[in-house]
Design a binder for these strands. Structure first.
Lengths: 233, 233
DNA sequence: GTCCTTGTTTGCGGTGGAGCAAACAGCAGG
DNA sequence: CCTGCTGTTTGCTCCACCGCAAACAAGGAC
């Protein structure tokens, strides 16, 4: 295994306040792995053996409903912890994680969790803040689904993705990983047909430019008006 | 202030493994308060000064959307921690807590959180498990709202309430706090009209008995079939 | 008891968005 | 180049559910 340089994780909130030497110790117990596009990092229901830190790429986290439908819970971006079932007291993964593009992630065995948490308080704290903020995000999503209609939900979702993983291009801000209409539908509780219709409409109005597995927001401000249902129809 | 007996909290998971003397110490820094029915324990957006443990009663936790609509996040039952914004790194409460019936709750100042957590590992661990399980519940709710229709969502919600806070009566299992059609609607992302219609239908079919702020499940098995959409129409 | 507030029921009409079907386009691989 | 696969677009129909309106109970205050 190649040597893992401490600079990989030095800047991350999870390791704030951890000294250089200690970073090396933490890394010594981690294993780094490459996850090619569309491969599963772990699978829903599987025994949770490791927890992960995404070094590069984007991970799609999805749950399958009892009825067999997929729901995308979130996208993980660089520097985030994921698969931290152990921190929630679970022995199996509640969702599946799939690489949206080629990814590199560190993995630690769950058995190290208590030790890491005890030795590096900022690490444990960061993990719990991660869970806390995901709880808030998920609550916000429940509110959206309860009170907004599909058009606003999709607008909100796209704005969130762009904010989280936007890449500037000459024509606007683009979501910098491939995402299908189906994916967006599974994030917003609707169908790919409806997503397609709305995106087409927005494209005619010059709010977005979109193509195969691509979405570029050209007029974020106007799209925000859509999200808030304050746009002249 | 009356003396708080350690037996109040001795059996709770949050204090598993804490000795009797230490329980007294924990209680010494807590204040107990009575919250009459319909009074607010804390309010959304308010500076979070305390965290709470519900000793008796039921608390409704609700969020108000930007558009002014209410969404009920959950009901808190006896023995649960709530208002633990501090554990999520928040300085304000993300939701409001209202007593569904007369309640008694312990309150600790947030400033004690780090100390309690450090001194009583099981306390911190329990808090984080609480947050973890709420995240899972909320995720499950997102899945429900994405994939199920209103009838199933309401059935699931009522079954969950009954399981969590059911009280046996001669005619079935009753939700043992007052709950309106409006409340159920705000838990399931629908309207009180639709809830009323469905409950009326179920009452004709003998699945439930319901009255003013009351719901009694008389045929849990059949209601579960409704929840799973496996019932002969 | 009567009044009044709060919660519930029910009818009716309109519609947002699902479901189905079919054509179309971009990209990979031979 | 053509072939096939995967993702996208768009039209049409239908219905679950919302929104409005109005009548109807159940308690509580007095």
């Amino acid at each position: 295994m190649p040597h893992l340089d401490r600079s990989l994780i030095a800047g991350l909130p999870a390791f704030a306040g951890v000294s250089g030497e200690e970073l090396d110790r933490v890394l010594a117990s981690a294993r780094s792995a490459r996850h090619p596009k569309d491969s599963e990092v772990f699978s829903q229901g599987e025994e949770a053996g490791h927890f992960f830190l995404l070094l590069s790429g984007h991970i799609r986290v999805a749950q399958t409903s009892p009825g067999g439908q997929q729901v995308v819970a979130r996208y993980i971006t660089e520097g985030e912890l994921f698969g931290i079932a152990v921190a929630m007291g679970r022995s199996t993964y509640p969702a599946s994680a799939v690489a949206a593009i080629d990814c590199v992630a560190l993995a630690w065995p769950n058995s190290l969790w208590p030790e890491l948490q005890a030795r590096f308080p900022s690490f444990g704290a960061s993990a719990y803040l991660t869970i806390g903020s995901r709880l808030q995000d998920t609550q916000a999503r429940v509110i959206e689904m309860s009170t907004e209609q599909v058009e606003q939900r999709i607008a909100h979702t796209i704005l969130r993705l762009v904010k989280q993983s936007g890449r500037k291009t000459e024509s606007g801000i683009e979501i910098d990983f491939p995402i299908t209409r189906q994916d967006i539908a599974e994030m917003t509780g609707t169908t790919l047909h409806t997503v397609s219709r709305l995106l087409s409409g927005w494209e005619s109005d010059g709010l977005v430019r979109s193509g195969r597995q691509k979405v570029t927001v050209t007029d974020p401000h106007e799209l925000m008006l859509v999200a808030e249902n304050r746009r002249r129809k």
